[in-house]
């Protein structure tokens, strides 16, 4: 995949002595929707933070548009982030600003556009996510799905090259989930952007992603198109996709033996 906008090479990252990632390689091709899947605590969100330069790898590197992220100074990282939009798990809307001002925020910070242009652009972005009518509501007045859509409008405010989604479907009802799925795909194609979704929702992700990485035990356990992964015989992938209780991922957390704990 030579047309990658993001390349992750031999990436290791950990907190203290505990390594969360042990030599991960990933490529994210331009214009495609890629997903990173895996169980809770497998370090999926950490990969997004490493791409955004919020964390530094222990070893290896993340390259965004030909630039090695962790070698940049603060200004360099900020320059890279202007090419990125990120949707946080619960939206992370600024609670003291209205929906309109939330979406206008990146425009006001990074451009000198006149107020009438900002107004038109914000309403266009909100229209794209179906919330033009909610422009003057405050974040606490929005439902979870609406907040996620406003955050999406804010993430695409400056037409970024890369859009990252951290658990975009978590806690949403089926209708909101379908709306978000549709928006991710349609916005990606309309903007010509590259999307990376971190999630553990199988059905939704398999319905629209172009390429999927499975992360487990700090490494890429499997990768491929949804069709290839559906046909995969790998025990971890089978267990994950079919939500099986038994498999390589144990039900019990590491614990002393029953004999020891119950003094049998």
């Amino acid at each position: 995949m030579s047309n990658s906008i993001i390349s992750i090479k031999d990436l290791s990252f950990g907190y203290g002595d505990r390594l969360l990632h042990k030599g991960i390689d990933m490529e994210f091709p331009r214009g495609k929707v890629s997903a990173i899947m895996g169980g809770s605590g497998s370090g999926k969100t950490t990969i997004l933070r490493l791409i955004g330069g919020q964390l530094k790898p222990t070893s290896g590197q993340v390259e965004v548009d030909g630039t090695i992220v962790h070698k940049q100074n603060r200004d360099g990282i900020y320059r890279l982030r202007r090419k990125m939009g990120m949707l946080f798990q619960h939206g992370a809307l600024f609670s003291d600003l209205s929906v309109f001002e939330n979406v206008a925020f990146p425009m006001r910070e990074h451009t000198n556009l006149p107020e009438n242009i900002i107004k038109d652009l914000v309403l266009l972005k909100l229209n794209a996510v179906g919330l033009r009518g909610a422009a003057y509501l405050m974040p606490p007045e929005l439902s979870g799905g609406m907040a996620r859509r406003v955050a999406l409008a804010r993430a695409i405010a400056l037409d970024p090259d890369i859009i990252m989604y951290d658990e975009p479907f978590a806690g949403l009802d089926p209708i909101s989930m379908a709306v978000i799925c549709d928006l991710i795909r349609s916005l990606n194609d309309a903007l010509g952007a590259t999307s990376i979704i971190v999630t553990h929702d199988v059905a939704e992700t398999f319905s629209f992603a172009d390429y999927i990485y499975f992360v487990a035990d700090g490494v890429v356990a499997a990768e491929g198109s949804p069709k290839q992964l559906m046909a995969s015989k790998l025990p971890f992938v089978k267990q994950f996709i079919h939500a099986e209780k038994d498999g390589p991922v144990p039900f019990h957390y590491d614990a002393p033996s029953m004999k020891e704990d119950f003094a049998l």
């Binding site: 919020q54 982030r81 619960h90 600024f94 910070e109 955050a151």
Partner: peptide, 21 residues
């Protein structure tokens, strides 16, 4: 609370310094 609800991280990811803003 801004930190707990990831508002500061969101600002950082928008290339806006939370210290300045």
């Amino acid at each position: 609370l801004m930190k707990a609800t990831e508002q500061l991280s969101a600002m950082e990811m928008m290339a806006v310094s939370p210290v300045a803003r």
